[in-house]
Structure formats: C-alpha cells, structure tokens
Amino acid sequence: MAKQATAEKRQRRERGSINPDDIIKGAFELAEQVGIDNLSMPLLGKHLGVGVTSIYWYFRKKDDLLNAMTDRALRQYVFATPYVEADDWRETLHNHAWTMRKTFLGNPILCDLILIRSALSPRAAQLGVLEVEKSIASLVEAGLSPEDAFDTYSAISVHVRGSVVLQRLYEKNAAAEDGGVALEDNLVVDPENTPLLAQVSSAGHHIIAADDSNFEYTLNCILDHAERQIAKGGKKAPAKKTTKA
C-alpha cells in the first residue's frame, strides 16, 4: 500500500529558529515517510513544528525546495561514486556503473529526485558535467578517442539510469493503492508455445526485467566494445575480465 501523507507532530519551534539546512534535513526525513510525490509544504511545516510561512520565507514553492534537496543529494552521491582510472579503466568503470546502480536502488528518494524528477539546478547540473568530464578524460587516456569515450560513458550512464528507473517504477506500481500490475508480471510463459522462453525462465532469467543479470550482461557488452575500440587504435587494453560486483 502507498504510504499516506502523514507526519509526526513535533513541539512547535520558536519563531525564527528554523534555517534552510533544518528545512532541507526535515524534508528528507519526511520524504522517507511519505515519498517525494506526497511531500508538501504544510505537511513539512507540521513535521518541523513551524508555521508554513517560515518555510516559504526560504523556499517560495515546492520546486525550489526539491532543487535544494537535489543539490544536496547529488553532492552526496558524487562523493560516494568511485572515479574511473585510466590504468585500470575497465574494472573501475565496471565498479563505477555498479556503484551508481546500487546507490540509486538503495535510496528511492535519491532516485526520485535525480532520475525521475530530472530537474537539476544550474549548480547541480554543472557539478554533474565536471564529473562526466573526469570520467571521459580517463577513458581518452586509456586509448579511446574523445568521441568513443563520450559514447562509452554515455551508454553506461543511460544503461544505469534506465535500469534503475524501470525498477523504481515497478516498485511504485506494485505499491499503488489501485493494485497495478507491471508488464513483466502479466507475461505468461507457456512451455508448449514458447519453449525457449520457458527454458531460460526456469534457469532464473527474467523477461523484460531490469535485474542484476540483465544489467551485467549489457554492461559487459558496452565494455567489450570499448575494449575493441582501444585495441583497434593500437593501444593494448587490459586483458583482465570483470566479474559481477
């Protein structure tokens, strides 16, 4: 069942005792209870024990508050993500992708703010651009052309974000009050009519699912292609194969 938009009532604060950091911190606490969709200024005021006008003094509308939350979430996420290193590009890029996936899947609020809402403030967007530049520079140093380095990192980024968003939407649909059912749960595999699908399904594979197995397979396809591009350019790529994180 979807969480109802309720919040614990706290003892009311004195006038002027709240600041932007307190509001953002309280918004994250409340979002953990009710979700980003149900987060509202009046509900946040009740959670913090202040009048809603105290919040509007710093954040004129909900989008302004969400932008501030996104800025903070993105800074925490970037610091927790390992860098791509040129001398071991395949292993570090592989770990980079898995860390991004696990970080977003393990933090639904982070996922909703950065991936689903996808409305970054100029400051957050600039921070993201700088991190992408670092990763592409490492891939160029490893032997890829700037174009191939960009395409490689972009493909992995889209792969990570797409798989996470699909999983998050599946979870939201499963928790909906109307009892919505995801497409993959409606698929019926009949051994008579679809013997190959039945065979792989019985071995634990999931159809149209963004699970770890599908994620790892596609990730390695991207990395294999990049390795071939490096070899074609005359620079020997590390022979070490990555394993599932």
Rank of each mutant, 00 (worst) to 15 (best):
I24L: 10
E147S: 14
E147K: 14
H47V: 10
V165P: 00
S54Y: 09
L30W: 01
E177F: 03
L139V: 01
T218Y: 08
S121Y: 06
V181P: 00
S40V: 05
D212N: 15
A231L: 09
S17A: 15
M1D: 10
K25C: 02
F28P: 04
L127D: 09
R123Q: 12
A237Q: 06
I109L: 15
R101N: 09
S163R: 04
A237Y: 02
E32M: 09
N193V: 06
A210V: 08
K102W: 03
S163Y: 06
G128H: 05
G128F: 04
F215Q: 10
D21S: 14
G45T: 09
R123H: 07
L197S: 11
E227D: 12
K241W: 01
I109V: 15
R60W: 01
K232V: 09
N67T: 09
E29C: 06
Y153F: 15
A80V: 03
S154C: 06
V50W: 05
N67H: 14
K236Q: 13
W98L: 09
A27N: 04
N173C: 11
W98K: 13
L74W: 04
D148R: 13
A68R: 14
D64T: 10
G162F: 02
I114P: 00
R161P: 00
T99L: 03
A239K: 15
N186I: 02
R101V: 06
L65V: 07
T242Q: 10
I109G: 00
F28W: 07
L187C: 07
I24V: 15
D64L: 05
C111H: 06
H94Q: 11
T53E: 14
T152N: 08
L110D: 12
R13W: 07
T53M: 11
V50H: 07
G49T: 10
I24E: 08
L66F: 12
N38E: 12
S40W: 03
R90Q: 14
D185E: 15
G26K: 03
W89L: 11
A31S: 14
V84H: 00
K241M: 08
K240D: 08
A2H: 07
K236S: 13
N19L: 05
T243C: 01
G26Y: 04
D21L: 11
R13C: 07
G162D: 04
A237M: 05
A239C: 02
I207V: 13
D224W: 07
R15E: 06
Q4M: 10
E177N: 13
H47F: 11
P122C: 12
H159K: 09
Q229N: 08
A245P: 04
K61M: 07
L66S: 00
G49N: 10
E216A: 14
D88R: 15
K25H: 12
V165N: 01
I208G: 01
L127H: 03
V200M: 11
R117V: 01
I18N: 02
T6F: 05
L120T: 01
R123L: 04
F79L: 11
H47A: 15
A7E: 04
A237I: 02
L48K: 02
P195K: 13
T243F: 07
N214K: 04
R117L: 06
A149N: 02
L113F: 08
D185P: 02
G234I: 08
I18Y: 03
K61A: 12
A176M: 08
L144S: 05
T243A: 12
T81K: 09
A155G: 12
F215Y: 15
S202W: 00
L48H: 03
I156Q: 00
D63M: 13
K134F: 02
N186P: 00
